[in-house]
Computed example of a mutant assay.
Amino acid sequence: MEELLDYISSEIYQKSHVVVDDFVDRPFRKALLEEQIQLVQQGKFKTAAVGTGGQKQVRTEIRSDEVLWMDAEDLSALQSAFWEKIAEVRKVLNQRCFLGLRSFEGHFARYPIGSFYKRHLDQFHAVPHRVVTVILYLNDSWTSEDGGALRMYIPQDDGSELIEDVLPIGGRLVVFLSGEIPHEVMPTKKERISITGWLRDID
C-alpha cells in the first residue's frame, strides 16, 4: 500500500492526475456495490443537481445521474473503511504535494442507462475548497462498448488539451486536481456505479 500511495502522490505532483487499477480488492468492492444496490432499492438516491445553495437545480440536459451523499457522522462499516483508505491518500498528498487537505466529502453515484454528465470542473467559485477529486468505480464488468467513460481534458504546456478516456472498471481509482482538469462522463449503455468524492482544504 505504501508503494501505491507513493505512486499516486508522484503522479499527482507531476501530471495532476492518476489512474490506479485494483485500489481495493474484489470482496471489498463487491460489498460496497451490494450496499449501494440496496440503498438504490430503498429509494435513497436522488437525481443530481447542479449549482449550490439557492442556485441549486436539477438540469438533466447537463447531468442525469443519481446520487446519495454519505453522512460523515453516520457511515456504515464499509463506508468507514473506504474513508480510512482515502484518509491515507490525503495524508500522502499532504506530505508529498503540500496541498493542505483537511477533510473529505463523498457520495455514491449511479448513472442509469443513457445518462451522462457534460464537461465541467469540480472546483469553481461556488465550491473553491475542492482540491482533489477521487473516484472509485464499483461495476462488476465493463468494456469500451458499454460507453460511460470518464473523459478528461488534460491541459498541455502549449495551450492544447490531451483527451484521455478512462473506463469505469470495478476497483479502479481515479484521482485528479479538481481545479485543473475539466472532464465529463460520456453517455452510458449500462448502469454505471461509483463513489465520487473530494478532498478539501477546509474541515
Rank of each mutant, 00 (worst) to 15 (best):
E2T: 14
E2M: 08
I8P: 00
I8H: 00
S10L: 15
E11P: 11
I12A: 05
K15Y: 13
K15N: 15
H17V: 07
V19L: 02
V20D: 01
F23W: 12
V24N: 05
R26V: 15
L32K: 07
L32P: 02
L33A: 10
E35H: 10
Q42C: 05
F45M: 09
A49K: 14
V50D: 02
G51T: 03
G53T: 07
K56G: 08
K56P: 04
R59W: 04
T60E: 14
R63Y: 08
S64M: 11
V67A: 05
L68F: 11
M70L: 14
D71N: 14
L75R: 12
S76N: 07
S76C: 10
A77N: 14
L78D: 06
Q79W: 09
S80H: 13
S80Q: 15
W83G: 00
E84R: 15
A87S: 15
N94E: 09
R96P: 00
L101M: 11
S103V: 09
S103Y: 10
F104E: 12
F104Y: 15
E105G: 05
E105L: 11
E105F: 10
E105C: 05
F108W: 08
P112Q: 10
Y117C: 03
R119F: 06
H120Y: 09
L121C: 04
Q123H: 06
Q123M: 09
F124S: 03
A126T: 15
P128E: 05
P128M: 08
V132G: 03
T133Q: 01
V134W: 01
I135S: 01
Y137Q: 08
Y137T: 06
L138R: 02
S141E: 14
W142P: 08
T143S: 13
D146E: 11
G147H: 03
Y153P: 02
I154G: 02
P155C: 00
Q156K: 11
D158C: 03
S160P: 01
E161T: 13
D165C: 04
D165H: 03
L167V: 05
L167K: 07
L167M: 14
L167Q: 11
L167W: 05
P168L: 10
P168M: 09
I169C: 01
R172S: 00
L173F: 09
V174W: 00
G179N: 11
E180D: 10
E180F: 12
P182I: 04
H183W: 11
E184S: 13
V185P: 01
V185K: 04
P187W: 09
P187F: 09
T188Q: 08
T188P: 07
K189P: 00
K190C: 08
K190V: 06
R192M: 07
R192V: 04
R192P: 04
I193F: 12
G197S: 08
G197L: 02
W198A: 05
L199Y: 08
L199V: 11
D201W: 01
D203V: 11
